[in-house]
Nucleic acid binder design. Structure first.
Lengths: 227, 227
DNA sequence: AAATATCTGTTGGTTTTCCAACAAAGGAAG
DNA sequence: CTTCCTTTGTTGGAAAACCAACAGATATTT
């Protein structure tokens, strides 16, 4: 329990709630913790789930394979992140995507009926919990907007540069490592792997980036890279 | 006021709240109503807004022009729909897109501080209002996921068919009209207009669809059209 | 009604992506 | 170390998208 509370400090859902209060909330919510191995499926597409998950360790990927066989990586969720939470508060209850583990990971599952029914009780933290959830979903909304903007770009080059620029910004440095392999990156950008590899080489030859395996450096920092 | 209450019946935000209660809420929230002409800008990109909008009549479009000059239409919001609401509950406060009118329209503006600060008061409808907002944002989240899936498709044909199929489903009929002109549709699908026009002709010649101006019919209903 | 502006479909030429195949590099397992 | 498997980069041909330009249709203005 100690460890769990510690892990949850990264989770916004329990923001503004003390550790002691969090502990009693967890009991009240009857949460359950599960461990998964790399590549294991947490939620399968089309499944109906009564609970959403919180990543405690490792990283999960939200994926969808479309009719034409193209795999799309919709999001990567790291420690403290939520997945499947949208369906706790929407009418739609079947998952339109699958969630699987990028590496060995642990997740905490919360039944959303419990979370919602808490509203009826006069629980002192309930209000904070709901507002936190609102903030999380709102932020995910913004993330999806940015994601949409990225995928809407017309060429592989534009997508790559926009992605690298965003990663650089996130890392706070012009040099950074990414945690996707080439195929995953292609699926994230919705482009073809080999063409993307070729484009990376081209950008390197043109002196726009430096790259070695999963390490990238953006040169020519003055350029806005489309952002 | 009568009319306003009537118009708001389509708005989920006031779901489960009686008309009388809605009326007092509106006063409490100090909402303001504004009218706009076709093509007029409601929110400009980069703006900081303290309020979100509810479409009372007409339709607004959420757009973004990227670095390369491509216009992307992110969403169309009809009567009863909300726009800019995400920023009421997120840390990010500047709008990453602009909102403009597809035709003459009216919108109601709600200051999100007022909505949030109501939480402090013991207002009887506040809880319902917040949960409604949660549902709306969650649904928008799902919409964005679907949108992402659409834009991630690789070819103009796939995008078109997915779009038409979704519209058909929404209309509840294999024949339906769309409220976007060709350029707008292209911007919505993130493709090039002329290529898209050509693709529409091709689909028509192949007997997959029937189309005349903004009216479309999906033939060959047995095909899943990638969905 | 005439003139003007906007929207739509069509068509070449160019660029880019997609696809399939393969070879080199790296890791994991025996 | 060797073998097997996965990942990555490269390349050439096919397909598709992009772009610009234009003409016919439709809408709007004068």
């Amino acid at each position: 329990m100690e460890k769990l509370i510690y892990q949850l400090r990264k989770c916004e859902l329990f923001g503004e709630i003390s550790e002691g209060e969090t502990e009693s909330l967890l009991i009240c919510l009857e949460v359950s913790k599960k461990s998964f191995e790399k590549k294991q499926i947490v939620f399968a597409e089309g499944e109906r789930s009564d609970s959403f998950g919180i990543v405690l360790s490792g990283q999960v990927q939200v994926k969808k394979i479309d009719f034409y066989g193209n795999r799309n990586i919709l999001a990567m969720i790291g420690e403290g992140g939520l997945f499947g939470e949208t369906f706790a508060f929407s009418k739609q209850k079947t998952l339109p995507f699958s969630v699987s583990c990028a590496n060995d990971c642990e997740a905490l599952f919360v039944d959303h009926h419990k979370l919602a029914s808490m509203c009826a009780k006069a629980c002192p933290y309930h209000n904070t919990l709901i507002l936190n959830m609102l903030g999380i979903i709102a932020d995910k909304n913004i993330f999806l907007n940015e994601r949409l903007e990225l995928v809407a770009k017309r060429t592989t080059k534009e997508k790559l540069l926009a992605f690298l620029y965003a990663e650089s910004k996130r890392a706070g440095s012009s040099c950074f490592a990414i945690n996707l392999n080439r195929q995953e990156l292609a699926d994230y950008l919705s482009v073809e792997r080999s063409a993307m590899s070729a484009e990376i080489s081209k950008l390197r030859n043109e002196g726009i980036i430096k790259s070695d395996k999963n390490n990238f450096c953006l040169l020519k920092k003055s350029e806005p890279f489309g952002l």
